[in-house]
Design a protein around this nucleic acid. Sequence first.
DNA 1: GCTATACGTCACCATACGGTGACATGTCAA
DNA 2: TTGACATGTCACCGTATGGTGACGTATAGC
Lengths: 218, 218
Amino acid sequence: MSEARERDRAATKTRLLQAVEAVIAEDGFGAIGVNAIARRAGADKVLIYRYFGGLAGLLSAYAEDGDFWWQVDDMLAEPLPGPHEADGLSRCLAAIFARHAAFLRAHPVTLEVIAWEIAERNELTEALESVREGRSQEMMRRLAARFDLEVAEFLASVGPMFALLGAAANYLAARERRLKIFNGIDLQSDAGWRTLEQSAARMIAGVAGGALSTHSTD
Amino acid sequence: MSEARERDRAATKTRLLQAVEAVIAEDGFGAIGVNAIARRAGADKVLIYRYFGGLAGLLSAYAEDGDFWWQVDDMLAEPLPGPHEADGLSRCLAAIFARHAAFLRAHPVTLEVIAWEIAERNELTEALESVREGRSQEMMRRLAARFDLEVAEFLASVGPMFALLGAAANYLAARERRLKIFNGIDLQSDAGWRTLEQSAARMIAGVAGGALSTHSTD
DNA sequence: GCTATACGTCACCATACGGTGACATGTCAA
DNA sequence: TTGACATGTCACCGTATGGTGACGTATAGC
């Protein structure tokens, strides 16, 4: 006779939050819903309404304590090519692209959320979007400082490039879940991704070798 | 009293196929289903099963006569920088990227399907994937011929670059539906896209100015 | 004219969803 | 001890979905 579960609000809330993660990880964002989450948590769905005000509130809460996105420190962690090395800037940018791609491929829940963002806007996807936008901007500012370049100018040239390469990585990593070949590249193999990283590195070098590395006005 | 609709199988099939398009265009791929389509077509849903064997068959049929993707001829239409102009190859590749992006932004149903591909695999998305893969490969082969470059070598260097830039365009165009800013770029403005195209052009030029334009071994 | 078939309509099923009201029971304060 | 509140359980509602069987009725072939 259903064994009267322990009366512990905090623990139940935690179970619900963990259930969000579990459902996303195992069945994808399409499976998210009060019924599925409550079932997974072994709790009654009415508690989602009582404790979080509904599914939206639960997703918001999940978004707040989850870390779906890389930390700036991790992306800029040493060893990383610096301003005093040959082609330091372009090699540094290429390394960051590779780290970005590696992060995505290692975080399936993040990939699910990225896929979700494209299909729909909700509390979770909005939260991730704003976190990511903030981290990206901060990372670029710190990169500009690292290479002693003027921020506005750096943003103007590197920003669009990172937008393109970041978008490409997001797309390809999300598609890797279900698609093997994209434009002749094997997305589901490390070799395919190495090819992409090398190509990105060459494109970056072409730009950084030009306008960027000149230290411009100074 | 429900006015006994004309008995015309072919016309009904057409109405159902058009309803697929209408539902995708107006409510997105998430709204696709036998009920929604039948409702939109003004037909009974049982006819979807009778005439197409189910939703999957209907989507397959829709995929066959729909043209979701650009034609190679359109992407290579003149005027397009050629082998006898300065920086012909890199300007040509940049122009193709711009055309690709413009196509996407002008075809909302294609964007819906692209978004759909990321979330799910079905008859429709598989059909588009194979069409696109074929067209991309053919376009690259024809580009190699246009610039008198060896195909294998051309594919090895341009393929990954197009994979990255194409993926970026797909992602950003799909996100433009619901997201305004990505990495500081305004996706919902033509100015934002011009910025992206210029950045892509610079990255392409950096690569094409190196290994590519040397005509390599000949 | 008669009959078989094709076409379309309708009613219905089981299932799942989001959401709510009522109730039992444990805990803590007066 | 009594009463208020918090926690959890359960039954239920309306709605929507995918899917099927039964029923008309117009058309075509004999």
